[in-house]
Simulated scan of single mutants.
Amino acid sequence: MSQPLPAGSLSEKTALVTGSSRGIGADTARYLAQAGANVVINFRNKAPRAEKLATELRDLGVDVLTVGADLTDPASVAEMFRAVEERFAGLDVLVLNASGGMEGGMAEDYALKLNRDAQLNVLATALPLLSDGARVVFVTSHQAHFIETTPTMPEYEPVARSKRAGEVALREQIPALAEKGVEFVVVSGDMIEGTITATLLERANPGAISERRESAGRLYNVSEFAAEVALAAVEPVPADNTRLIGDVSSFGA
């Protein structure tokens, strides 16, 4: 995929992308760095993979910090932002990309803790570092964004409802963010080919992804959707603070 952002358009800016050692988060960090941004790569437990990406991005001439943090642990999140402040002083872009809930062996309330409570806490902890004119981007799925009006696969419903709860809670922060000069935008996409979630859904419900692809006409892949997330960090915020990516006709939109 070609670089979606003009070279140099984010020079002297700093961006933090949660869950960015792989997948959509990694490609988003890559696009932001290619546009000149210094980047904070956040990961939970894959330090070597994060460091490999960091090495690649440093070759672009930008400063890159890798920080491991469990987003469901407020102390871990506080430590991450202390490291960011020491290195960069402030933040211009915060991409809330990390999410989950389909992993095995997690507590029953894990999806809600990660997709709602942790998102709110990350934003609250980041707020003192966000500059006037900063942008917060929350990444979600159509299956979550439209869950109140359009049913989704039973295997995904708990995750969808928790992500929707996170989106609603974050939207309630928009007036307070606006007072500080911080903009907020939601980026919602369909199932993304090649993501962990799509793989787990296909395993739980064989044929689910091909069925969804047929219904939608096409599904975005990881790099294509990451390009849309990166664009959301710089393009004007829509009036409803929402960027819907791809076809939404089957979601009653």
Rank of each mutant, 00 (worst) to 15 (best):
R171H: 14
L170Y: 02
A176R: 09
E167V: 13
A160L: 07
P154R: 11
V182H: 07
H142F: 14
S141A: 09
G181D: 14
R171I: 11
Q173L: 03
S141L: 02
V136T: 10
P158A: 11
H142M: 09
P175Q: 13
E167G: 01
F138Q: 13
E157P: 04
K180H: 07
F184T: 04
V139M: 08
S162M: 10
H142D: 08
I174K: 09
A144H: 03
A178C: 06
S162Q: 14
E157R: 15
E179Q: 08
P175G: 05
F184Y: 14
A134I: 07
A169H: 02
A160K: 04
V182G: 09
A178G: 14
A144C: 06
L170N: 00
E155D: 13
A160N: 09
K163T: 07
R135M: 12
V159G: 12
A134F: 06
S131K: 14
F184K: 07
Q173I: 04
I174W: 01
A144T: 02
T150I: 00
H145W: 15
T140K: 00
P151C: 10
K180S: 10
M153P: 00
E157D: 15
I147N: 14
Q173N: 01
P154Y: 08
P151S: 12
P154Q: 12
A176M: 03
Q143L: 02
G133E: 07
G181W: 14
D132P: 09
P175K: 08
F184S: 05
E157L: 10
P175L: 10
R135A: 07
R164M: 11
E183G: 14
P154K: 09
Q143R: 06
K163D: 07
E183H: 12
G133C: 12
V182Q: 08
S131C: 10
E148M: 10
V139C: 03
A165H: 11
P151F: 12
A169Y: 11
H142I: 04
R171Q: 12
E179L: 01
